[in-house]
């Protein structure tokens, strides 16, 4: 169908707006940070040490600085779920280090009144932080859900390459997501808001 919003992924080239399954969404909830360092393997189990950032630290000290390589194992809050690639296509083509993902959340994470308002297409001045995704029954099947721009996570490109890509977006939907994300970040609380009502 020509008017499908979500399209089957083609090839291996990842595009802005692509939707992946079982992707991490991580968030630091509190301080002190807790750093995990691998201690030893005991049979089938790996045993790790945990060091709070305000403690004495691991042997050799913490490696927080970029030129020290950073700490590899920070204990943070995380979910696994669907996510949308927000990295620009140009960045995907040229930057071998980082991709930015936004969490896609099930629609029942909004109360019913908010669902109706969000999916009515009206009062969009209230909804800069989220982008509604209508359902699609045709393949690739997408449940009604929403992108949460407040829940951004960065991953190495290899993480995407090893994950399940569910769908790419139509050109119109990609442009719509990009515009909404731009407005989310840089909106002014003035007449510009009315442009997208």
């Amino acid at each position: 169908m020509a008017d499908r919003l979500y399209l089957p992924p083609v090839g291996t080239e990842i595009l802005q707006g692509d939707i992946f399954d079982q992707m991490p969404s991580v968030r630091v909830e509190s301080r002190p940070l807790r750093v995990a360092r691998h201690w030893k393997q005991s049979g089938p189990r790996d045993i790790w040490e945990v060091h709070p950032e305000d403690g004495s630290g691991p042997r050799g000290g913490f490696k927080w600085l970029p030129d020290q390589g950073g700490e590899q194992g920070l204990l943070v809050h995380a979910y696994l779920g669907r996510a949308m690639v927000l990295s620009h296509d140009c960045e995907i083509e040229n930057d071998p280090r980082t991709r930015t993902l936004a969490m896609i959340r099930p629609i029942n994470h909004l109360d019913e009144a908010s669902q109706r308002e969000l999916f009515s297409g009206g009062r969009q001045d209230r909804w800069f932080a989220v982008f509604p995704l209508v359902g699609q029954i045709d393949e690739p099947r997408i449940e009604r859900s929403f992108v949460d721009f407040r829940r951004l996570t960065t991953v190495h490109p290899d993480v995407l390459a090893a994950s399940i890509r569910v769908a790419s977006l139509s050109e119109e939907l990609r442009s719509a997501v990009a515009e909404r994300f731009r407005l989310y970040l840089f909106r002014r609380v003035d007449s510009q808001v009315t442009d997208v009502r």
Binding site: Y79, R82, P106, S120, G121, P132, E143, R144, E179
Partner: peptide, 30 residues
Amino acid sequence: VVWSEFVPLWSIEVEEVGVRAMYGRLAAAH
């Protein structure tokens, strides 16, 4: 995340009118 929520077909059709129009406005602006 669980993706088993049942969504009635009629609600998808109704919602698409408003949301698809919004998609079009945003895409045109972009």
